[in-house]
Simulated scan of single mutants.
Amino acid sequence: MNKLHATAGEALDGLLFDGMTIAAGGFGLCGIPELLISAIRDAGTKDLTVASNNCGVDDFGLGILLATKQIRKMISSYVGENAEFMRQYLSGELELEFNPQGTLAERMRAGGAGIPGFYTATGVGTVIAEGKEHKEFNGKTYILETGIVADLSIVKAWKADPSGNLVFRKTARNFNPPAATCGKVCVAEVEEIVPMGSLDPDHIHLPGIYVHRLIQGQHEKRIEQRTVRKREAV
């Protein structure tokens, strides 16, 4: 099975449809599948539900899908750094399902592991718990959260071999592995594809069994919040 594709558009061919659910990896602007996101924008697929930690910034990452009004609903834990996200939500143009960060990661992991739901104490007594089943274990209250199963997962890794074994670099290892596993189909973009057998099995973060299609590309290294101090006098 050849998983390698020349472009992001080619890798997504036949997978996109209006109203679908997409799980997207990354955290802030770190480890985001920027090439695949751009290809989804170019395809014009609309009414999307996107499960991702956040929604990029106004002109980069998932933010470009907000700008084109292709996202109907976000399932996220953080919505800062994106003025258009805030505007669309407050105006009623965008549906938002807030999840605590660990809960969102676990919902993706659970979906990928075939677990339909799990109980957590996070969010008990807050708006997060409204409308959800409550249950006591050992005298403590928990709420039921459901696993996420997406129509498509899009992730970004550092290295891959042709079979789709992935290695993530540093912080990019946060939401990418659980996002990759919870999709019915997973497409990964990587910075480098290395020959079969050159990856140490102990260093592989995600086995290729989860990855269906693969592209290599050039990526932009953006800093979400640039913080500098004044130069000290010499």
Rank of each mutant, 00 (worst) to 15 (best):
I64W: 14
L199W: 01
G9D: 00
H205D: 09
G183T: 00
I223S: 15
I223T: 15
H212E: 10
I32R: 07
E192T: 02
D151S: 02
T49I: 12
I40Y: 07
H203C: 09
A157H: 03
E10N: 03
V190D: 01
L4I: 07
R226L: 15
L29F: 06
D58C: 10
R229K: 15
M86D: 15
G164H: 03
I193A: 00
V149Y: 05
A179T: 06
K73E: 14
K132N: 08
L12I: 00
K140T: 08
C30Y: 13
G56Q: 09
L144E: 03
L48C: 07
N82R: 14
F137Y: 06
F27S: 12
I71D: 11
M86G: 13
V50M: 08
E133C: 05
F168T: 02
E220C: 13
K46P: 05
K184M: 02
N53T: 11
P195C: 00
R169K: 14
H203P: 04
D161H: 03
G139K: 07
G80E: 15
K156C: 07
P33A: 05
G208T: 05
A172S: 11
A160W: 04
I143T: 03
L36C: 04
P195S: 00
G147R: 06
F60P: 11
T141E: 12
I71Y: 12
N176P: 01
L199P: 01
V79C: 11
V190A: 01
T45W: 09
L36A: 04
D47N: 11
G111R: 08
V167T: 06
G125T: 11
I37E: 08
E136W: 07
E133F: 07
I37G: 05
K221C: 11
E136M: 12
M1F: 09
D161A: 01
V124W: 07
T146H: 12
I204G: 01
A83R: 15
R87G: 12
R231L: 15
F137R: 00
K156D: 02
G14K: 03
F85Q: 13
A6W: 05
H134K: 13
P201W: 01
D161Y: 05
G44A: 08
R109K: 13
P33D: 06
A172Y: 05
N165G: 04
A188V: 00
I148P: 04
G131F: 09
D13G: 03
C55S: 11
H205M: 05
E81Q: 15
G131P: 10
